[in-house]
Amino acid sequence: MMRHSENSVASEGVSGVGQLPETAEEQQPKKKKFRWKVDYYGILFIVPFFVVYAIFSLYPMIYSIALSLTDYEGFNRDIGLVGFVNFTWLATQPRFWQSLLNTVMIFCMNFVPQMLFALIFAAMFTGKTYKMRGKGAFKGIYYLPNILTATSVAVMFYTLFARPSGGLWQLLTHMGMSTDVNLYLMPWPSRIIIAFIQFWMWFGNSMITLSAGILGINPSVFEAAQLDGASQKDIFVHITLPLIKPIVVYSLVVSTLGGLQVFDIPYLFLSGGPALTDGRNATETVAVYIYKMAFTGDMRYNIASAASVYLFVICMIVSFVLFRITHSDELKEQKRMERRIAKRGGVA
């Protein structure tokens, strides 16, 4: 019965979305003589997209939201609406908050150094004074980790940091770490390794995106600055950085959304955390928490759905806020540039 109501909601949602123009078109023939306009092919062409989206994305979303309001657990056939009980229950769960905190911590430990390094390297690669050879090869090497399967990468680093056989573990002991240390039993080192894997995988991507942004800046801006006697440092701080800020913020939005949903690496690396009591779930991200809730143990679909609704709301708020910031920044930036150009008399 519940299913039926969802179905109708889903189909309504779709017709509201995709077929708005079509209803207008159906009314026309009654008044005027109906003529099939060639532009109606445009509507025909987007139908597959929206039909498939409605079935495989929109309906599951509504289904998830509906499940989060029920008591559907395990093999329970007798499902009833329970309202927001799951949400309030989740809000009192330290493990859920811990997973959220873990996600944020792992993301920050990965993103901040990643952007810093990416900026430094992008500056080096695009610098005019210190032109270097072999840029293509370096870029190729830096991007390589990004294309590899995340699960293989997780298992690879797992073997490399394992005590006592892992190569990187041995490297760390050569650099002064005690040989008694088992990194996988300690919360912070585990988190740092996961953040490092993320950094390792995404550094090249950020660096290439930022370099592309810098190369996309109109060269005459740099030339004008150079003619005015600006130093390389000044040019980077006062021209390059402000002009690529939109790209940095865009990367921030995309990476944040990706970072909030990170699953593969934490799941396969330690499947959520060191197995010790005090460090348990130290690397469990929200996505891992949702997966574990739904598909292991008691199969608590309702709790997992409620957690995914929370995650969705958080993602929406984050992207809304970040886009708000970029937008106002862009307007300010534009005005500032206009003023600069007006002062200089129309360069660029």
């Binding site: 079935i55 495989f56 994305s57 309906y59 599951p60 979303m61 509504i62 289904y63 998830s64 939201i65 509906a66 499940l67 959304l257 909030l260 949903q261 929200v286 996505a287 949702i290 997966y291 739904a294 598909f295 679909y301 997992a304 759905s305 995914s308 609704v309 995650l311 969705f312 993602c315 929406m316 992207s319």
Partner: peptide, 14 residues
């Protein structure tokens, strides 16, 4: 902008 996680459980059920 919609994260895929939201539809995960519903997708599995579907």
């Amino acid at each position: 902008m919609i994260p895929g996680q939201l539809s995960m459980i519903g997708f599995y059920k579907l």
